[in-house]
Design a protein around this nucleic acid. Structure first.
Length: 852
RNA sequence: GCCGGGGUGACGGAACUGGUGAGACGUGGCCGACUUAAAAUCGGCUGCCCGCAAGGGCGUGGGGGUUCGAAUCCCUCCCCCGGCACCA
């Protein structure tokens, strides 16, 4: 038969191997102690972020799981026992909003999607241990979410409190700070409103320092993710100082990172939300003006208030407070540039050394008193640009960049006994001075606030708490878990949780006093569900505990975590917090869940984010049906470095399909025209050696690029080169036993190397040529004798310009290479009657002769 | 404004710790073979400019520097993407 007419048809090949993996349970791994556990192997936990099941999987899913699967396969074949599970983040708003629109129960639509996702993942041939599958909406899962909530409650890490919270009027629920982006609901884009409500919080702020210092325990996290979390936690060191208002006998604490500027505090500002304003204004002359200002500030949206470009506003309260360092009475203002959420909601204003205070002081004609002298010349040429001479027109001298910025070399001025001393010392000394007099102390402040976890929504994990008139807050006893989500008719949120309507469920008795009581009707933020799922995978059927400690200690931490950057702060920080809290409770050994993190970039189409309205959505299902899963997966990995994202181009996908077809036809032809068992020569020569050298070069290149990280595009390119080389040489090699053996080796090697990306085709060709299962084979090793060449291309430069090239023996060095170089005609002609200044020889590479 | 990432052919992207004449691999384009024809397949060419050619000149965002030698190191400027942003 004419082999060139063999067509690569992925469908039957892919179906065949998927059946094998399914029937033989190839990717299942046993826990330690169970039969089948391979205790002798090192473990590797490879995990991709679990999907939110909605509709069907999109290209983003295809990408994460293709990338993760390549990692999993590579690790397995390098001797690791790899655990690679899958699950679903099933609770959440989209399903509930769908229910509001259609009346269909969120469980029904969600479970339909889950089936679709599962079927697609299997169709893609992802190597998942399906026995470990979980979904966060299963009572058998959320029972343990509730259990963990109760343990955190016992540890003092979950509490209920009234707080100013961010309320999304459209979704009719409160949001975590992390879910508010530029003053808008992250999900629907509606402007959020402030509200005071009683809500449940996790005390993540207790872990602020550990969340920062434990970055040291991580091996490889993208720098930008670490930076984003650092900024989010926002640790600042400084001091608290007490400013007393004698008239109303109130002490106001302020936080500052610049205690060295205390002598420059010329006024004092409170945030409009500050709880003591009413007490302060009582009996003063402009009560009404202050009240009006406060009311206006409350009405203003976060967006309006956050606008930095806006002019500073504020009003004076007819009171003064005492500056603790010099006893000076300074006026008090209310201004909305001071935020209640950060620090104490009150600041000492040092206009000479703070831009915002400077702006405010300029506007209101307040004193600007420099107390720090910039280091001379320290700031470089820019620092004195137009400042000290007083030539600046309407800016009150001597303020400028030099005063606002500050450096280690600054000195205090106008600061009583501290004057003349270097700023860093003054900082410490003033704080010590305050502390001795009980007027202040060193302090650390964080931008991070506690995690608000209550949601006034239906489709989530119920908070396992009972409110008793007599006993107050009573945790649901463990043996009554799970608190199952009741059925309701109406999902529409009305500012209260839809669960309120489930009377039979809400009304209960107190576990403590047995009196009448009501259940908590809020549900948990879905980020709670996903903060521990990677632990449940390890022991998914445990009915005693969320997971067995020994099992968790065996598999944890996750060696490679893969997902989108959009979770850089939220999910990744919450999961870190949960793991630390669980470790503190004695349930777990590790301090960090994810040792290595990889964040993949987004795939676009025609340069734009895919969306239904643009009509540029790539459907993985369609491509997999048309070109096969192997092509879709390999193309995704070939597009470019996966962290960068890329543009989906149909021709590109077809190019990869063409390559896989070439490999397939090579396999068929080699299988038909050669006999198994042909021996490779021990000292290959000629074209046999060329092909073998290329094969070993590909092994070496692919292995190094795999180990370097996620350079999958160049791994695949190396296999393409090998296949191209086989095509170039095959007609000369068929027929001789050495040639046959070389072709068989090259083809099997290509199959073996492409397997992590195209597992079906890789398996099929390997079986054809070598027999057996490629995934049971160790990752191939390059033969160093075939990597080294006995000659190399010597490049000869004169004055850095290449003048000649020649093949030279690899052993040659120094003088020998120079002699060769000088003998070249092209070189000699450039050396004529010139003086040789210098000769550089890089053995194995080049010779450069410098002449004058 | 601050913090990260990036700027290389028509396009996606290669290039080990500065060392081949940068551009692997793929896409696209051009040419050829096979074919009645097309598709598929196989082979060749493809950074830009001048030249019939041999050959020469220019090229990794712009400018400057270090070096025998720079896409790679340093300074400076410009542009793009992502994050944070009145955080005291």
């Amino acid at each position: 038969m004419n082999v060139s007419e063999q067509r690569y048809e992925p469908e039957p090949i892919e179906t065949k191997w998927q059946r094998v993996w399914n029937e033989e349970r190839t990717w299942e791994v046993a826990n330690p102690g169970e039969p089948g556990s391979e205790g002798s192997k090192a473990k590797a936990y490879v995990l991709e972020m679990l999907p939110y099941p909605s509709g069907e999987p999109h290209v983003g899913h295809l990408k994460v799981y293709s990338v993760g699967d390549a990692v999993a396969h590579f690790r397995r074949r390098n001797g690791y026992e790899v655990i690679h599970p899958m699950g679903y983040d099933a609770f959440g708003l989209p399903a509930e909003n769908h229910a509001i629109r259609t009346g269909e129960h969120p469980r029904a639509s969600t479970e339909r999607s889950i089936e679709e996702f599962r079927e697609q993942f299997k169709r893609w041939g992802i190597s998942i241990d399906w026995t470990r599958e979980v979904s966060t909406h299963w009572p058998s899962y959320y029972r343990w979410t509730q259990w963990i909530f109760l343990r955190l409650y016992e540890q003092g890490l979950a509490y209920r409190s009234e707080a100013a919270v961010q309320w999304c009027p459209k979704d009719a629920t409160v949001l975590a700070n992390e879910q508010v982006v530029e003053g808008r609901c992250e999900r629907c884009g509606t402007l959020v409103e402030p509200r005071r409500l009683k809500q449940w919080f996790f005390k993540i702020t207790d872990y602020a320092d550990r969340l920062l210092t434990d970055f040291d325990l991580l091996e490889s996290w993208p720098e930008n993710v670490v930076t984003m979390q650092r900024n989010w936690i926002g640790r600042s060191e400084g001091a608290e100082a007490i400013f007393r208002c004698a008239a109303v006998e109130l002490d106001f604490e302020v936080f500052t990172t610049r205690p060295d500027t205390l002598f420059g505090a010329t006024f004092f500002v409170l945030a409009p939300e500050h709880p003591e304003i009413e007490r302060l204004i009582e009996g003063t002359d402009n009560v009404e003006e202050v009240r009006e200002y406060v009311a206006a500030a409350m009405r203003a949206s976060a967006e309006e208030r956050g606008d930095e470009a806006r002019e500073k506003t504020g009003v004076r309260i007819g009171r003064t407070v005492t500056n603790p360092v010099n006893g000076e009475e300074i006026p008090v203002y209310v201004a909305d540039y001071v935020l209640m959420e950060y620090g104490t909601g009150a600041i000492m204003a040092v206009p000479a050394h703070d831009e915002r205070d400077f702006e405010f002081a300029t506007r209101f004609g307040l004193e600007i008193r420099p107390v720090v002298e910039p280091a001379e010349g320290a700031g470089g040429p820019s620092s004195d640009a137009g400042v000290p001479g007083g030539e600046a027109e309407d800016v009150p001298a001597p303020i400028g960049e030099a005063f606002l910025s500050h450096s280690e070399n600054d000195r205090a001025i106008n600061s009583a006994e501290f004057s003349g001393r270097p700023s860093p010392e003054v900082k410490r000394e003033i704080v010590a001075w305050l502390q001795e007099r009980d007027l202040g102390r060193p302090a650390v402040n964080y931008r991070l606030r506690d995690w608000l976890l209550s949601r006034q929504r239906y489709w989530g994990c119920p908070i396992p708490i009972i409110h008793c008139e007599a006993c107050g807050i009573v945790p649901v006893p463990d043996e009554q878990l799970p608190v199952e989500l009741p059925e309701v008719e109406e999902y529409q949120p009305k500012g209260k949780s839809p669960l309120e309507a489930a009377n039979d469920w809400v009304e209960t008795s107190c576990p403590s006093c047995e009196g009448p009581a009501r259940r908590e009707t809020d549900t948990m933020d879905t980020f709670v569900d996903s903060s521990w799922y990677f632990l449940r995978y390890l022991d998914p059927d445990n009915e005693e505990r969320p997971f067995d400690r020994e099992i968790a200690d065996h598999w944890m931490p996750v060696d490679q975590y893969i997902g989108g950057v959009e979770h850089a702060i939220l999910h990744l920080m919450y999961a870190r917090f949960f793991v630390k809290a669980l470790a503190d409770g004695g349930y777990l050994d590790v301090q960090e869940p994810f040792t290595n993190l990889f964040t993949q970039g987004m795939i676009t189409r025609d340069g734009a984010k895919m969306s239904k309205s643009k009509g540029n959505v790539v459907s993985p299902r369609e491509y997999v049906e048309r070109l096969g899963a192997d092509t879709a997966r390999t193309y995704i990995c070939f597009m470019g470095p996966p962290e960068r994202g890329g543009d989906w181009v149909d021709e590109g996908a077809e190019g990869v399909h063409r390559f896989l077809s070439r490999l397939w036809r090579l396999g068929v032809e080699v299988d038909e025209r050669t006999e198994p068992g042909a021996e490779l020569p021990s000292e290959p020569t000629g074209e046999v050696r060329e092909l073998l050298a290329k094969a070993h070069w590909s092994i070496d290149k692919a292995t190094r690029d795999f180990e370097r990280g996620f350079q999958f595009n160049t791994v695949i390119a190396a296999v393409m080169e090998l296949v191209n080389e086989a095509y170039r040489l095959k007609d000369g090699l068929f027929g001789s036993s050495e040639g046959d053996a070389a072709l068989r080796f090259a083809t099997a090697t290509a199959a073996s190397l492409i397997f992590p990306f195209a597992p079906h085709l890789g398996s099929e060709i390997w079986e054809m040529i070598e027999g057996g299962r490629v995934w049971e084979e160790p990752w191939p090793q390059a033969d160093p004798t075939l990597l080294s060449r006995d000659t190399f291309t010597l490049v000869i430069q004169v004055n850095g310009k290449v003048r000649a090239k020649l093949e030279a023996d690899s052993g040659l060095e120094g003088e020998e290479l120079l002699a060769l170089a000088r003998a070249e005609e092209q070189v000699a002609s450039h050396l004529d009657d010139k003086e040789i200044v210098k000769e550089i020889v890089v053995p194995g590479r080049l010779v450069n002769i410098v002449v004058r």
